[in-house]
């Protein structure tokens, strides 16, 4: 009896020791892991942190005391200056004027074509689909000059219309690709049921398919908003007037205008990112989902 009891005790003890050891080890491991993670993350965010810090200071302060000094005082002057004097306000408005219609246009058009490609068998289905997929990978550069010419011929060069058009058109490929793959997963019985009840094809699309694909629409919309809002290249090629520039091109101008006033430039840059950052904060799930869907699987 005693031997058995002893034996059990020793196993128990050994187990406890093991547990303790592994616990200590795992805590140690956790500490290492978190220290590493926090370190890397801070390093990663350092550029952004530096930007925020700079924007609340003055250039004199930085020049005299150096970058890593404790700021003499925090000021939001640079933000107001960037907002009013450096015209960030107008650039942001321009960006919205371009982005919102382009977004609405591309979502509507691409969901139509995605619906056709996903739910109907017809001649050329696959070919059209691949045209879209190929188009979404095209480098912008191959389109720039002809589109420049086209915009000139249509007399929409140097208007927001030209940018809205090209963004809508170019992003059709990506949106169609993602939405089509999503729409294929919707069970056909729902659509058939509606069809049997005498629902027209367009109504099926509008009242059944679109609501069902809202999650993927949201994902695409979030991502596309960021892309179109962040576009710089097309604005350079299709707009010549300063007044019409979107925020990205506006920032580039800002750098030329105030090239030594880094607090102002960084303040402008921060203001410029606010819309996308807000979007990212609130719709992060959709943003990530969009990126994942867009990669093909």
């Amino acid at each position: 009896m005693t031997t058995i009891a002893q034996a059990t005790r020793t196993t128990k003890q050994r187990q406890q020791e093991d547990d303790l050891r592994s616990q200590i080890f795992s805590i140690f491991w956790q500490v290492i892991k978190y220290a590493f993670l926090i370190g890397v993350t801070l390093l990663w965010l350092l550029p952004l942190f530096a930007t925020v810090l700079t924007s609340f200071r003055t250039m004199d302060d930085i020049t005299v005391n150096g970058f890593w000094s404790i700021p003499e005082r925090f000021t939001v002057d640079k933000f107001t200056q960037a907002w009013d004097q450096a015209d960030i306000r107008r650039y942001l408005i321009n960006s919205f004027i371009i982005t919102i219609p382009a977004l609405v246009g591309m979502l509507f058009l691409s969901s139509m074509s995605a619906y056709a490609l996903a739910r109907y068998r017809f001649r050329g289905n696959r070919f059209i689909y691949f045209t879209y997929v190929a188009g979404m990978m095209l480098p912008f550069q191959i389109l720039l000059l002809p589109v420049f010419r086209l915009a000139n011929e249509l007399k929409i060069y140097n208007t927001h219309g030209a940018l809205i058009m090209i963004h809508t058109a170019f992003q059709l490929g990506f949106c169609t690709f993602v939405l089509r793959n999503f729409m294929r997963t919707v069970p056909g019985e729902i659509l058939d049921a509606a069809r049997v009840d005498g629902c027209g094809e367009f109504r099926i699309f509008l009242q059944i398919m679109l609501p069902l694909s809202l999650p993927s629409l949201a994902a695409v919309a979030t991502l596309e908003f960021t892309w179109v809002f962040n576009d710089y290249l097309w604005a350079l090629f299709l707009l010549s007037e300063q007044q019409l520039q979107p925020i990205t091109a506006g920032l580039a101008t800002l750098q030329g205008q105030y090239h030594a006033d880094w607090p102002l430039i960084t303040a402008g840059a921060l203001l410029a990112t606010l819309p996308t950052v807000f979007l990212f904060i609130f719709l992060q799930r959709y943003f990530i989902q969009g990126l994942t869907l867009g990669s093909g699987k």
């Binding site: 965010l45 952004l48 960021t226 962040n230 410029a272 990112t273 996308t276 950052v277 990212f280 992060q284």
Partner: peptide, 12 residues
Amino acid sequence: SFYSPLVLSGPV
């Protein structure tokens, strides 16, 4: 924090 640079535009 690793995703965050993704939403920044090229100019920024």
